[in-house]
Design a protein around this nucleic acid. Structure first.
Lengths: 209, 209
DNA sequence: TGTCAAAGTAATTACTTACTCACATAATGG
DNA sequence: CCATTATGTGAGTAAGTAATTACTTTGACA
């Protein structure tokens, strides 16, 4: 083990800081993640952080970029591996849940950023991520409709909203129970209902079957 | 208009404070709701607040009780007015969305409390609300299953989770678009898919109809 | 009507926050 | 090997934060 160098290039320190925030958020309310807490986890003095970031919001920007890149890359890879649109959606969903199980602080941070009052750059990144995610959902849902996998009258925007809500419902359960394995198991069960909703939507409500 | 008395009984001031927090949360990140901000909205000095609350968390407790009482009372009233379980669920859902449209800060505050690290009394109240809400959902869903309105194999826990997620998905869209009327309209569209999911769950995935 | 407890004020407390700065140290290229 | 620059330190700063306190005002009621 090489004795850890005390001076690291700025780029590496920035990556370290982002990682520190992600890990801190797993067990802490994002609002309580102070620059001191970040520096402490990096074994750095608090002031040193500002050699690499001009402001605290810049750290949050870095974090949101990290989340965006990783999450979108993962769901694109998973969805791209499937030919059936519904299978692609399911892979996206389960992959997203896995991502959250691996990084439990992420939804907390997203929510924290989104509900910030002012228009900070970090908030804009968070919103852009949600939009990009929604675009991917709608694209796949449109493909499913075009292929006749789901009814032609399926409301795609509503289906996308419900998809995102499905993830958040699981996150809330996770916040309350704190059990990642359970969240993963619940995900499959919720998916069954969602999938049925996609397949059956707009059909006569009575006389099912 | 009677000239506003400067000295109010403590009970009224507490109610005022809770109301002030609810209204502040409509436009502010809950974490930024300081005792000074609350006092300012009440046209009171900051210190005076502590004549009526021993601590700031006590204010949050009051707020969470306010939310609990009002929300549960509303959904109980709406659901109780329906005989068909599915109609009751729909009334609950739309009533909940209305409640959020009237008090947009509520979901923000709930989320903020739930993700607090420590075990504050206010956090416990928030969690209790979610549990009570879930219990009501599961009771109605169980009734629907018993009456044969939904398939006997419907996963009730998953359906309840998805219901709560459905609300949160709308809240997130609302956070992004900031349009209450749109949220209300979207709610009906999302409900169609959810309802279809309840009715069709566990049926053969292929060959819909 | 005078009394007194409840309610309000203004100033202050101890503490935390993001951010800065003068100075020290490590890495790097000529 | 030395000079330059990037990185790190430790001790600041100003602007908040929740909570306290000495003192004043109000209003109800004996």
């Amino acid at each position: 083990m090489t004795p850890r160098p005390r001076h690291l290039p700025s780029e590496e320190r920035r990556a370290e800081a982002v990682e520190a925030v992600i890990r801190l958020a797993a067990s802490t309310n994002p609002e309580e993640i102070t620059t001191s807490a970040i520096a402490a986890r990096m074994k750095l003095t608090q002031g040193a952080l500002f050699r690499h970031f001009p402001t605290k919001d810049a750290i949050w920007q870095g974090v949101m970029e990290w989340v965006s890149d990783r999450l979108l890359a993962r769901i694109d890879r998973l969805a791209g591996a499937e030919t059936d649109p519904l299978a692609a959606l399911e892979a996206m969903f389960l992959g997203h849940v896995d991502f959250i199980a691996e990084h439990p602080g992420v939804p907390r941070m997203m929510a924290g950023q989104l509900q910030n009052a002012g228009e900070t750059p970090a908030k804009r990144l968070a919103r852009t991520l949600v939009e990009n995610y929604g675009n991917r959902l709608r694209r796949i849902l449109a493909a499913a409709r075009a292929e006749g996998v789901v009814p032609p009258g399926l409301d795609i925007d509503a289906a996308a909203t419900l998809f995102l809500g499905m993830v958040q419902g699981l996150v809330m359960q996770h916040l309350i129970h704190g059990d990642s394995a359970r969240m993963r198991a619940d995900a499959s069960r919720v998916w069954v209902i969602y999938r049925a909703g996609l397949l059956a939507a707009e059909h006569a409500p009575e006389g099912r079957a």
